[in-house]
Design a protein around this nucleic acid. Structure first.
Lengths: 235, 235
DNA sequence: CTTCAGGTATAACAGGGTTATGGGATACTG
DNA sequence: CAGTATCCCATAACCCTGTTATACCTGAAG
């Protein structure tokens, strides 16, 4: 193995260890000494590869955005773009529910050391990349929105603007649910998220009936994919 | 001054200093030594009054929720409940825009020390109180939603569920805007927040025309109260 | 006057991020 | 092949921050 690839290896392994320990042990696991011990190197590795802990945390945040993009990219397009939007919403929510600690860092909710108050504050290269990844995840929503407009389901408004509305609603729900509101398990999805999606779709031009059927279609697709029977609200 | 009131004084002054230094110098100002120096006491005061920094930060978060409730409570009821919801949205957004650092702590986005990943994790008494304050702020939205339903503007759905949808959309917008998306100044309000409000109102049962007029009414009321001419998107 | 309790200052401890230094391996260079 | 330069990393220390142990001081109660 060349030294270049060995070095990259350590860098990659540090980020991977950070994500893993973050999920297992929470934000307090994001410590230079713990990460170094986990990878089997000294804390200096953090500084030769990242320059400091904050840049490493930014890299973790970027990994979260990337993961979100990958999840959304795997939502397959059907001939019902509104149903696809519902599927994306479920996917977005599921990603956050499965790795809450990771996305808490990604969304800047949990910031060890008090850094990264806002994305605007980011001055590091990794920080800007993180913001860029966020926008890439956003484009998946934009495309589905554009298809909904083209299909006549939504009124012919600017697709970026409509998608930003959808993103706001979705992100707000996910954030508040992750903060403990809306109760545990599937309660939030059935009582808030799906009605919210129908509200948004209808507000953007869809009919209540068609939006409801799209929500049902997405629910059926979700069950088929996850194997979850989806009975009831609990767990 | 009795010793009891003197002691309370130090406790109150610590929280006040924390909020002030937080707004001025960012999250890194929330340090025991800095707060103690600012108030003119030793760091022990933090421990005699709060037991530790995390409880003091929880108190700051609680202050944010309380401030949010007070702001929303001051939105006066008119005979147009949908316009009142728009006014609350502007108020919510304005509160966060004016004290971004405070509300970053309140919403758990900036957590010095990596504590408080989610509200569910809160085990301290102050933490639970903070969650309670959040719900109290929520009730203001619930009441306006109930009035919109009573007025026939919204379909007769459960007001808590509809309000939760509105809260999700609003909170998501505010969060994403504070993270730097949606651009600076009033851009986000005019391009995203108001269209989002109209989308939500229409989706909940209102007509496009009436929702638009309510948005305009709220805008006029806002200008009258703040004295802002509100011309253009910039700054 | 004595005693006690609460609040505080002082000083130290513990555990983080960070850095100065030096060694060692690798890849150029003659 | 010898020399050298460069990159990566281990060691050890430094600094800062949260926290705690201890003693003092003040005021109230007996």
């Amino acid at each position: 193995m060349s030294p270049k690839s060995r070095a990259t290896d350590v860098k990659v392994r540090l980020v991977e260890a950070a994500i893993r320990l973050l999920d297992e042990n929470g934000p307090e696991a994001l410590q230079a000494r713990k990460l170094a011990a986990e990878v089997g190197v000294s804390t200096m590795a953090v500084y030769t590869h990242f320059g400091g802990m904050s840049a490493l945390v930014d890299e973790v945040a970027r990994a979260g955005f990337l993961r979100l993009s990958e999840w959304l990219a795997q939502v397959e397009e059907t001939d019902d773009p509104v149903a696809d939007i519902f599927s994306m919403a479920r996917t977005y929510r599921q990603a956050v529910a499965e790795q809450p600690q990771l996305f808490a860092v990604t969304f800047g909710q949990s910031a060890p050391g008090g850094k990264r108050a806002t994305l605007s504050d980011l001055t590091t290269e990794e920080g800007r990349e993180a913001a860029q990844e966020g926008l890439e995840a956003f484009t998946h929503i934009v495309r589905a929105t554009a298809r909904a407009i083209a299909a006549g389901r939504f009124r012919p408004v600017d697709e970026y603007q409509a998608a930003a509305q959808l993103w706001s609603a979705l992100h707000g729900f996910v954030t508040l649910e992750a903060s403990g509101h809306f109760g545990p398990g599937e309660q939030g999805i059935n009582h808030i998220l799906i009605p919210l999606g129908i509200t948004m779709a209808v507000g953007l031009g869809d009919t209540v009936d068609r939006a409801g059927r799209s929500a049902e279609a997405a629910k059926a697709a979700w069950r088929a994919k996850t194997g979850n029977a989806g009975q009831g609200d609990n767990e």
